[in-house]
Write a protein that binds this DNA or RNA. Structure first.
Lengths: 331, 331
DNA sequence: CTGTTAGCGCCTTCAG
DNA sequence: CTGAAGGCGCTAACAG
C-alpha cells in the first residue's frame, strides 16, 4: 500500500502530528523538523489521503456531480465546460455521468453521488419525473436542475427561453410569407418538448394560422428518425413551405430531407451549430449560451453548499435565446 | 449532519454491527431485526458513507480520472463516452477535467486525482513533457495516455494512426493530380503534430514531390488563426491547388478560406464531423472511432487496477483510421 | 513548539 | 445470530 503519515513520521523521527502540521503549513513547526518531514515525504513519495482527511475534518469532498443525457451532444459539452469553469474557481472537481435519457439510470446515478457525499448535483432530467432528485432523499445533497423546471420537488433550476426562442423563429418564418409550417418536435412529456411546441403553436395563432396536425411529428430520438419524419411531412400533397425543428438532431434530419426534396423548403431550428453558416441551404437557428447555463447552475448549487439553510427558495434563472439568420446562398 | 450508522442502530435498538451487516445483505441477520433496521434506514433517510467505508475496507474509490484538453471538442466528447462505457460496466464513475492545453494545469489535476486516490487516470497530454504523469510520482495510481505515446515514462498508451491517416489522405490528393498541396498543422512539439506532418511529407516524397515551406503553417490554436493561415497560403502567387488540414479546427478554417477564394481548392483534413456531407464543397476526411480509443484506454487502466503488478509493460494499442470522400456537389 | 489522546463513520475480528 | 473492541488515515483538543 501507499505510505501513511505514520511512515513519514517514523522516517523523519517525529510524531504524526508534526507531519500533519507541516503538510498544513502550520507556522508552529520548527524549521529543522519541518525540513526533515519534507525530506521524508519526498523520499517516500508520500501523498496525504484526502478521503481520510475529509472524514476527520468533516469537510466536503469538493466534488460536483453532473448527470446529463449525453456528453456527445455539443449542448451538454458546453454545459459541462460552464460547470467546470465555476467549479475550478472553487477548487472543485466534476464527476460526469450520462443517463442516456433513462430515468432509472438517472436515479441510480444521483443515489450513487449522494452515497459518495458529493457536495452538490446538477442534473438535466431525462423526463418529467423528478422524485428521485429531491435532496430530501439524497442525504441532503443540494440539487440544481438545468434545462427543465422541477416537478413536485423544491429545487433551483436554470432554464432556457424555449418558448420565446421558438416563438420568435417561427414568427420569422411567418413574416417571410410562410403559411404552412411543419414541426419536428420532442416528446410532449418533456418540458423542453412541450415548451417548444407551445412556442410554435403560439406563433401560428398570433398570426391567425391554424395548427395542422399533419405537419407535426413529435418524437424523433435520432437523426435517422428525424429524416424519416421530415420526409413524411414533405411527401404529403400540399406540403409545408417551411419547417421548424425543435433541436439539433431534428434540424439535421430536416436538412437532409429538405435537400433530397430539392432544397426549396425553408428551415428553422433550435440549437446553433458550428457549420450552420457553411451549409448549402439557408437556415434560421435559435441560439443561446449553453456554457452560461452551466456556469449559473454551478453558482446556484455552490450557493447552497455555502449556505445549507438557504434551500427552500426554488429559484429560477432563465437564459435568453437569440435568433440567427444564416442566408447561406442556396446552390 | 447526516445520520450515521449509530443513529440507525439506536433507532432500531440494535448494535451498529447489525446495521452494517444488514446493509451488506449478510444473511446472518435475523429477519426481524433486519426489517427493523430497514425501517430505521427509511425513517432517517440514512445512506451509508462510502468514503468512510472505503477507508476501513481499504477498498478503491471506484473513480476514474480523465484529463483532456477540451471537452467541447467533439473528439474528446466521444473519447469521454467510450471511457464511461467501460467504467460503467465496472460500477465506476468518471471525473473529468479540462487542462486547456496547459501542462502546469495538467500536473495540478493529476496530482489532485492522486491525492483523492482515484483508481486510475487517463490523460491526453497537452504537450510532450510527461514527467508529472509517471505513476511513481502519483501515489502509484495507474496512468494510461490517449492520443500520444509516453515520453520518458513507462505507461500504456492508446494511439491513433496519425501518420497512416495523413499519408493516405494526402496520397489521395496527389492521385487526383494535385502537385502543390498546402498543410495546416499542429505544433511540432506535440506527437500528433509531428506524426501528421510526417505523414504529409512522406506522401509527397513517395510521389517524388518536394515539400515547399511556403505552403506549410503549423500553429493555429483556433479557427480564426486557421482561416488566417489558410488565407496566407492561398494568397501567394502560384498557390496550392489542394490543402491538407491536420485537425477539425484547421479544416474548418481552411474551408472558410477556400470558400472565400472561390471554392476551387481541394480540401482534405484529419477528423470527421457531423456535417461533412452537407457542406457545399467537396471534402476528404480522415475518420476514426474516437469512442473506441476511450474504451480501450479504460480497459487498459482497469487492467492495471485489477492487477497492480502488471505495470511495467508499456503497451501500445493503435486505433486505425479510414479515409472518407465526401463529393459534396460544389455550388 | 511538540506529542498524546480520542474519534470522524465504518468494518474486521473475535468472543459470546 | 449478535455485540464489543479496535483500527483504517488523519486531525481537533488538549496537555506539556
Amino acid at each position: 500500500m501507499n505510505p501513511t503519515m505514520r511512515d513519514v513520521a517514523d522516517y523523519a523521527r517525529v510524531s504524526p502530528m508534526t507531519v500533519s502540521r507541516t503538510l498544513r503549513d502550520d507556522p508552529s513547526v520548527a524549521p529543522e523538523k519541518r525540513s526533515r518531514v519534507l525530506a521524508a515525504v519526498a523520499a517516500l513519495g508520500y501523498r496525504r489521503n484526502e478521503a481520510a482527511r475529509t472524514l476527520r475534518v468533516g469537510g466536503s469532498t469538493k466534488l460536483l456531480g453532473v448527470v446529463i443525457t449525453n456528453i456527445a451532444n455539443p449542448f451538454y459539452a458546453q454545459l459541462a465546460l460552464g460547470i467546470e469553469d465555476h467549479a475550478d474557481k472553487r477548487g472543485m472537481r466534476v464527476v460526469f455521468a450520462n443517463s442516456g435519457e433513462n430515468t432509472d439510470r438517472e436515479r441510480q446515478l444521483v443515489q450513487d453521488f449522494a452515497a459518495r457525499r458529493l457536495d452538490g448535483i446538477i442534473a438535466v432530467p431525462a423526463a418529467n419525473q423528478h422524485d428521485h432528485l429531491d435532496p430530501a432523499g439524497l442525504a441532503a445533497v443540494p440539487v440544481v436542475l438545468a434545462a427543465s423546471p422541477p416537478h413536485r420537488i423544491n429545487v433551483d433550476a436554470v432554464l432556457l427561453d424555449d418558448f420565446g426562442g421558438t416563438y420568435e423563429a417561427t414568427s420569422m418564418l411567418i413574416a417571410r410569407g410562410h403559411r404552412n409550417i411543419g414541426f419536428l418536435g420532442l416528446p410532449a412529456a418533456t418540458w423542453t418538448g412541450s415548451e417548444r411546441y407551445r412556442g410554435y403553436v403560439a406563433a401560428l395563432e398570433a398570426a391567425g394560422l391554424a395548427v395542422q396536425d399533419r405537419f407535426v411529428r413529435r418524437n424523433q430520438p435520432h437523426v435517422a428518425a428525424a429524416v424519416e419524419a421530415a420526409n413524411a411531412i414533405l411527401d404529403q400533397p400540399d406540403p409545408p413551405t417551411a419547417v421548424f425543428a425543435a433541436n439539433n438532431r431534428n434540424t439535421i434530419g430536416a436538412y437532409r430531407a429538405i435537400r433530397s426534396h430539392g432544397g426549396t423548403t425553408a428551415l428553422a431550428g433550435f440549437d446553433d451549430f458550428d457549420f450552420a453558416d457553411l451549409l448549402d441551404l439557408p437556415l434560421i437557428v435559435v441560439s443561446y449560451d449553453a456554457r452560461e447555463i452551466g456556469r449559473v447552475a454551478a453558482e446556484l448549487v455552490c450557493g447552497h453548499i455555502d449556505n445549507p439553510s438557504s434551500s427552500p427558495l426554488a429559484r429560477r434563472v432563465v437564459i435568453p435565446t437569440k435568433v440567427i439568420d444564416y442566408p447561406n446562398a442556396a446552390s
